[in-house]
Design a protein around this nucleic acid. Structure first.
Lengths: 217, 217, 217, 217
DNA sequence: TATGAATGAGGGTTCATTCAT
DNA sequence: CATGAATGAACCCTCATTCAT
């Protein structure tokens, strides 16, 4: 209908905005390119010209939103702080992001998991990046013994090996994702409050664990 | 090919088996009724006669698999045990289920989340049931003070209110789901080992929390 | 609209009939599957179910029509006859086929040549079969010296080598195709008349050539 | 990229060059205006400004290439020579043209035939011009008795009527086209050699025929 | 109980073509 | 002279769903 001239770079962002909105609302498969095109007041051929295909469009969404999320987390988790504080601030940033970008997070968390082979690579890459940020944090914590003046096994059988950090990262991100979903479902609360909730459950157990304590002796 | 006469109840189970397999392999939308019909060697009209529609078929899958999962969990989490042991055994049962019924779990965890409005109700109901099992366990723990001979605030500002148990349940199930996915991706391990991993992070923190301790004071 | 039940084998033939008609009328690219479906009073999904894709449908047309044409030619060119008579009868059969199956021939001759890579293989195979029938005939003629009681170089520099027979076959089939087109454009005539026209130009020169005579000494 | 100012006449030739290349490579329908525009480093609006539409562009290609081909043929077939020599030299020029302008010939011969109603007129006109050059040559030959000192029926029942010359022209051009295609497929050879091949089959028979001889008495 | 035959509807993709600059 | 931005219209293909047997 209206044919307002807009430079390419800007149009692409509009398109991604619309796509995230629609993918979040309907899911990847149920979303139609017509719907997305209409959402950003552009004809379908423009979508294809700029973003290539539905699949590539979805991948571009994932990439953009994951980058944003990671940036927020990384910026908040200042490495000069001690690990617990880092994680707390990172999680606070994460919950703030979810509250601000509801749609982005739904696409990343709910839609991204369900796709088949073609999209999975991009998604896996994005999620891996998130996880590895946390993994890195945990590894640093393990290396440094969390807190140098606290006694505990510096190394030994109980001490979590470096590979286990990945499992812990999975646990933490999974727990954070789930809590974010719960907050979305039950009504908003301050990001700090959510982060504290999670830390209260996780960190209090994680800290001893990092020093080698295990459940069940 | 051949038209073997099979009683209805049995045929329905075959159909559900095939559907779970195909939904897990291709995802809800990408899965076609043709594919499912072929998988269980039945003509499409039979599928529709017995299960109604694609949506209803999916809902039936969710229902059956969720029931199985919950049954396993409930059976393992003997209420006469103390809460920590209950949770440990429940999680062990859960990880064993995931290992045994890979497809079922993929459908429940990865596909179910991504669907749009029509399917979502059934899925929500199923997940709610899982969560409420855990929530119930936590509430009992809170009520009983976890462990009666340990000092701590029986009730007070720090004490988690009954509503918060739901948030904790979300955290635990989310963490368990994520860890299950991690195990599936990185190679198998004993269900007990996974459960211990998770308990090591979660329970050591959860226990004090249940008595009122919070992160950050 | 009408949903008359017709067994598959028969429907497939109807579809091929319609496809040949439409491809001949509009050309491969301009022809739409809708058009073809309507022509044979069947819905598009049936076309795809039975014939696979537009490309495969076209290939199936080529294959069927080429087989028919070759069968007619081969049946007429009784190998017990002498080569000239064989060729004459074969050509007569060819011109009769073109007159009877105008559409088939248009698809084979005019459409088949113009297609890109994907279709080209099937077409090439079909055309090769036609050419090789003629090539075989010519080779036999060369081997037998055409007519044993006529003097001429049995073998020698002037004698066409076996490879050259392929060039001659190309010439003959090309000439026949072109003459068929001319007849279609200028009005019908008896197949025998067309064959005699062609033989008058070609065979009178071909016969000496087969014995080694060349233009330009 | 860069917007070099180029005078119209020259730009049009560049466009036709590019169009011939692309049409030959992809076929008329599969060729896209984008592809053509890119091939000659010009924006699409310029194509439309100068050449009008895809159809007109194709017609312009046909016209230009056909003119070139006819010019080569006419220049070589010096009317002062005797008909056989004329045809031989004309064919040699033709085969040389095909070898030099592979793309042009593919468009003229393979693509032009397959198009639907709108383009067909231009193509028919071009082909008619080619054929009529040969027809004129043959008519002159018939009128002159080919070779005045050779006995034969100057006129009579067997003598080919003037209309039949068109059929012969069709045969010759068809045979030449087919042989050109065969040469393109099987590897290059001198244009003279191809012409001699064709003359060896055709002319040796054509010459008597022009004097009234027919196959089958 | 069981199925081969059939379709309405809609999705992704591409193309020739035109403004506005 | 030259173009980046934009679109209406079609086309190929697939799917959930239903008759008629």
């Amino acid at each position: 209908m209206k044919a307002k001239r807009v430079p390419r770079a800007q149009r692409e962002q509009q398109m991604l905005d619309a796509a995230v909105k629609v993918f979040s609302r309907s899911g990847y498969h149920a979303a139609s390119m017509d719907e997305i095109a209409e959402e950003c007041d552009v004809s379908k051929p423009m979508l294809y010209l700029y973003l290539g295909s539905k699949e590539e469009l979805f991948a571009a969404c994932i990439r953009r939103e994951a980058d944003r999320l990671i940036a927020r987390f990384a910026q908040a988790a200042d490495p000069s702080l001690d690990p617990g504080e880092q994680l707390f601030r990172g999680l606070t940033a994460f919950f703030a992001f979810v509250a601000d970008h509801r749609d982005s997070w739904i696409v990343l968390y709910q839609q991204a998991r369900a796709q088949g082979e073609p999209v999975v690579a991009e998604v896996a890459a994005a999620r891996a990046e998130v996880s590895s940020a946390v993994t890195a944090l945990l590894r640093r914590a393990i290396r440094e013994g969390v807190d140098d003046d606290v006694p505990g096994p510096r190394s030994g059988e109980g001490r979590p090996d470096r590979g286990e950090a990945a499992a812990m990262a999975a646990i933490i991100t999974g727990a954070a994702d789930a809590l974010a979903g719960w907050v979305l479902d039950t009504g908003p609360e301050a990001a700090e409050e959510s982060a504290r909730r999670l830390m209260s459950v996780i960190w209090i157990g994680l800290e001893p664990r990092l020093r080698g304590a295990r459940y069940g002796g």
